[in-house]
Simulated assay, not measured.
Amino acid sequence: MTAPTINGTRYPQPIDALLPAARALDLPDGQPFPSRNRLMREFRIGAPKADDLLARLKAEHAQRTRTKQTRTAMIVRGALLTPPTDPDSAPVPLDYAEPIGPHPAPAPAVPGHTSPADPTPVTPPKIAPTDPAGQVTVVGHPDTPTPTPPARPAVVWPVILLALPAFVAVWSGWVGLGGLTGFGVVHPLPGIADGFSINTAITLPIGVETYGAYALYVWLSGRVPDAARRFAKWSALGSLAVGALGQVAYHLLVAADVTLAPWWITTAVSVLPVAVLGMGAALAHLVRAHD
């Protein structure tokens, strides 16, 4: 036996006919509209028609929510814009109103005196004190904190004076150690510029000390990713330690009148340019990793 329909017929019901009955369904507290399964069970309809009916119920619920929010916002705005009622400003009844006519001009208020109509003493206006030169002195509120003047940045020019003698000593030490370990004058452009020559010993102070200073700057700047900061920290400390050991080795060899460095010192010094190149390239990639 076919279940009775909404309008008493046995034909499938249109959505417009099912919509009022769907609104009248009893729902649990907090549920704004029935589920699709309940619509299919209550009205003996298929899934497509239940989806269509549920979509209309959801649209009506959303419209009611927007309307309620708009009405609430208008009520709140009207309450904020409505000035409070002042009992002293209420209109005077007609029976007790003063006769219409010209009113005498009020007498000018004298500082420190009161008028008969208003017993409140009149406070004289405060005048800012002036200095002997006639300029007005601005007096601040006692509770207002005095702004702290910005601190001046520390000067850095003394670093130049410190770096000049260190540069001379480091340069001479590395160049001398390079001469003891096989670094010397070469012709980098044979057949092109035979007269052009360069002492390869200068690559040691330029590479090791320059990288140490740059890695130290990257480490202390605080403007690089964490991986680059850690790499710069340890490589800067290592580069400065290698530079110090290089100076110690050179002065010990010179003090002992050694004209040719031992093989292990020569090996360590000869790999420094390659190590500096690798660390510099790695640090450059880590610094730009966040880009």
Rank of each mutant, 00 (worst) to 15 (best):
I192M: 04
A193I: 07
D194S: 05
D194W: 06
G195D: 09
G195I: 12
G195W: 08
F196S: 11
S197V: 14
I198F: 15
T200S: 10
T200L: 11
A201N: 03
I202H: 04
T203P: 00
L204K: 02
I206N: 03
E209P: 00
E209H: 12
T210S: 13
T210R: 01
G212Q: 10
G212T: 10
A213W: 15
Y214M: 15
A215D: 12
A215E: 06
L216Q: 11
W219S: 11
S221L: 13
G222V: 14
V224S: 08
A227G: 09
A227M: 06
R230G: 01
A232D: 03
K233T: 03
K233N: 07
W234Q: 04
S235F: 09
A236D: 01
A236G: 03
L237F: 08
G238P: 00
G238F: 00
L240D: 06
L240H: 08
L240Q: 02
L240Y: 12
A241S: 08
A244R: 03
G246K: 00
G246R: 10
A249D: 07
A249W: 12
Y250H: 03
H251I: 05
H251V: 12
H251M: 10
H251E: 10
L253W: 02
A256C: 00
V258F: 01
T259P: 02
P262C: 09
W263F: 14
T266H: 07
T267P: 02
T267N: 10
A268R: 01
V269L: 00
S270H: 10
L272I: 15
P273W: 04
V274E: 11
A275N: 11
A275T: 12
A275K: 06
V276Y: 11
L277C: 05
G278L: 14
A282L: 15
R288P: 02
R288L: 05
A289I: 14
H290R: 06
